[in-house]
Design a protein around this nucleic acid. Structure first.
Lengths: 231, 231
DNA sequence: CGCCCCTTTGAAGCATATCAAACCGCGTGG
DNA sequence: CCACGCGGTTTGATATGCTTCAAAGGGGCG
């Protein structure tokens, strides 16, 4: 439920949503990034807002020695790159071939004159904040199984195709999102498969069908309030 | 630099800051909470905004089995309890005897009519978000030494009394903030003492003087961008 | 075909958690 | 006054969950 502009669990990309954010007629252009390409870098000047038409994006921060923390994954329909300051605080990269719509930031400056815009930005920032807050609990206090389970539940809820989760990201991406080693992610996934919680559809293990959501929720130590707080 | 309303590193409590947030004359009243007292609970209706006059507050989330993640500490001058929704997403508790100023939430509703208020709330929410984002990297990818070092640097920067850090919170609180066991926090503190990075002033080990900030910063794997992003 | 990336799985190592004990200061009540 | 309990801290010993290192297999693509 991260940064989604509409409220329904399953949604389709909506090309008018950035318009809704800023008024009308501000969507500048579209752009396509190849797999692995950087969309913007940490501490770069924030020039645009982005909405994903198709593809998937990760935002992350790096430590000097290469350790990486992914803060969020963005899927079709999601808006990212919102900054209330001059510079981006993350690197954003296309996980797979990704098309985004761009909006010039100057067109969406929160300011006294345009309360609607400010309000919409506030909503998006609040949503980001809620997601980050939930993730704090996950990273700080949950076990590897709980982390992977929570990740799968999140992806399931965000999944456009009901019934099957198609993961665009690698095990390494998932690991860097959950604060685990990629091998640990793999092991937990295998364990969940062995426990009949899920099955893999394809050889690459990127397509998943959940067989037992109840069990998965239990494994996640799911807290009611996690991401379901109404705005 | 969390949720501080002015920009200077060292600041004094400013009784007019909640006024500044919402216009003038909206500060309702003062209230005092004893040590350990709950100020508001998770999922309670958010009725007030709070600014600390004196004392210290922690906000946290709990798992069913008692695991706890503290998301932030608030010190004199800091504003907390800002919600852009109807309910609080955390529990807030007084760490020590704490006096707060309250503002009725209805007086500070972000809305189309009052862009100034919305903008101020946006600033506060953004600051919370930045803090949470930095904490994600800390929790997900940093070692116990880096965590404690980063915590000490944060507290040093927020410390009103230059030169000495007075910790209002216990080792357990620190541990739940950093995603560690309390014993680990204690061990790292001792290690830092043995390495002449800091000394304790009192028997209770709650008053700390940093002897070697350079070394501490190195130990923290300090990233320039951590909390210093300008608004 | 051959290379590279991704994934899985096993074995070993390590950082941190857990369990335990001791000390200290403080407040309470006998 | 002292005894006592209690919460907080430190420190040591042990346990363990996760990481690291390593190897093997599959698939895609030039």
């Amino acid at each position: 439920m991260l940064l989604r502009n509409n409220e329904s669990g399953h949604r389709r990309p909506n090309s008018r949503e950035l318009d809704a954010l800023a008024g009308a007629g501000v969507v500048c252009s579209e752009f396509c990034y190849g797999r692995g390409r950087e969309i913007f870098g940490e501490s770069e000047r924030a020039q645009y807002f982005y909405q994903i038409k198709c593809g998937a994006v990760r935002t992350c921060r790096l430590l000097a020695d290469g350790r990486r923390q992914i803060t969020a994954f963005y899927l079709p329909g999601d808006i990212f790159g919102i900054e209330n300051g001059p510079a981006h605080r993350f690197t954003a990269e296309a996980i797979i071939r990704t098309t985004v719509q761009l909006t010039k930031r100057e067109n969406v400056v929160p300011g006294d004159k345009n309360a609607v815009v400010t309000n919409n930005i506030l909503k998006l920032v609040t949503r980001n904040l809620q997601h980050a807050e939930s993730h704090l609990l996950l990273l700080g206090r949950q076990t590897s199984i709980e982390k992977v389970a929570a990740f799968l539940i999140e992806m399931d809820e965000r999944s456009a195709a009901a019934g099957v989760i198609c993961l665009p990201m690698s095990r390494r991406d998932i690991a860097d999102y959950l604060g685990l080693a990629l091998e640990t992610v793999s092991r937990v996934m295998s364990l969940l498969r062995d426990e009949n919680v899920l099955i893999f559809l394809d050889q690459s293990q990127r397509q998943i069908v959940l067989r037992d959501r109840t069990k998965l929720v239990k494994l996640a130590s799911w807290v009611q309030s996690r991401d379901t707080v109404p705005m």
